Computed example of a mutant assay.
Amino acid sequence: MNPKRSNAIWGFVFIAPQLIGLLAFSLIPLIAAFVLSTLDWDGFGAAAFIGIDNFTYAFKNPDFQKAMTNTLYFSVLTVPMGIFLSLLTAVALNNVRMRVVYRLFFFMPVVTSSVAVAIVWMWLLNGDFGIINVLLKLTFGIQGPQWLTDLHLVLPSLAIVSIWKGIGFNMVLFLAGLQGISKDYYEASMIDGATKNQQFWRITLPLLSPTTLFVTIIAVIDSFKVFDTAFVMTSGGPAKASYTMVYHLYELAFKNFQFGKSSAAAVVLFVIILFFTLLQTHLSRKWVHYAD
């Protein structure tokens, strides 16, 4: 057998598991969602083609509007603060001893079950006997709020949980980016008399911009996909104050059995995420710098 052909065959053999998984769990469901978005189907009977009626219903549905507003607000709360804290943590750990140990501690929430994290934080944020309110009472003598039942505090509370859980993942990415910056730049700047502050703003941040772009894109996508914390901690309440887009999709599909309407809302969410991703990629030309 031709060696090149043999190498090609073995190459396809090795990528086959990943390719099959991509087709089965990503591409085929994506195509199915687009097809279902044009159908009226309850998951059991015959499906009827109704064109764009599901999309019209989605944009007129008050629940869809509420879910989109909450999701956008949640994204604004989590993305900037999450990136800032992750970068701050990565910079702090970059030059300390036992960096691997600290990195492990910060990364543990990332690999911990979302349900387990949500249950623990439900106890911490309980307005009556939660440890956070107990500490506020003992330390400052103030009565803590009802974190998960207050209409104005429930989304910020979920944002705190999301930031805490995701900070380790972004921190690892930033650490990899920091360690990839050549020390020659810092040595040259020290010869020119640059301070640590000037090195950070003129060297570290610009050369870390590719990592920052990647982290930002991933953080925005994750913020739009929030579901597990809202599902476990608040069930979308109170009064749908934590009702997110993915929770809306879940209710339409698995509570109301309106798979066509749920798929249409999912397609809209997909388009919105795609828009923000392309927008960030386009704007990155102005602020992302790659080292020569």
Rank of each mutant, 00 (worst) to 15 (best):
A90F: 01
N256G: 11
D192N: 09
V268S: 10
F169S: 07
E187Q: 14
T69L: 15
T204S: 10
A176P: 10
M190A: 12
N70A: 12
A264M: 05
G236F: 03
G144S: 10
D128S: 14
L23H: 01
G127A: 09
I163Y: 04
W121Q: 09
H248F: 15
L135K: 02
D292C: 00
L138E: 14
V13P: 07
D292T: 12
T234C: 10
I15Y: 01
G43Y: 08
N54E: 08
S284T: 09
M245N: 00
L93P: 05
F84L: 15
F257C: 05
L124G: 02
I119A: 12
F224K: 02
N126Q: 09
T78M: 05
F129V: 13
F14G: 08
A46H: 07
M98D: 05
P3A: 12
S162R: 06
I9C: 08
E251L: 12
L30G: 15
F259K: 02
I142A: 13
Y73M: 12
I15M: 14
F49P: 03
I119K: 10
M1I: 11
T69V: 13
F14N: 06
I167T: 15
F64T: 00
E251F: 01
P109H: 03
A116R: 03
S242R: 04
T69I: 12
V232W: 01
V110I: 13
L208C: 07
T69K: 13
D42L: 06
D128T: 13
I203M: 03
L155M: 15
A67E: 03
N133V: 09
D222W: 09
M108N: 04
R97Y: 05
L278D: 00
A239C: 04
G21R: 01
L19E: 00
F49S: 07
A265Q: 05
W201H: 10
F49W: 15
F84T: 13
S75A: 15
H248N: 14
N61E: 10
A47M: 05
L208W: 01
L155Q: 06
H282C: 00
A241M: 07
A253K: 06
P109T: 07
I52A: 15
M171T: 15
T78Y: 08
I31G: 15
V288N: 10
F270Q: 02
Y73I: 13
A219C: 03
I15P: 05
L148Y: 08
F55A: 11
V100Y: 01
P62L: 10
F106M: 05
T229L: 14
L151M: 11
W201C: 08
D40Y: 09
V79N: 01
K183P: 01
I163H: 09
D228W: 05
Q199Y: 00
A194C: 13
F214H: 01
I218V: 14
V288D: 12
A265H: 02
Y57V: 03
I142H: 03
F106K: 00
I142M: 14
G193N: 03
V154Y: 10
Y57F: 13
T69R: 13
W41T: 00
A118Q: 06
N133P: 07
A32D: 08
W123F: 14
S37L: 04
S182W: 04
G177R: 02
I203A: 05
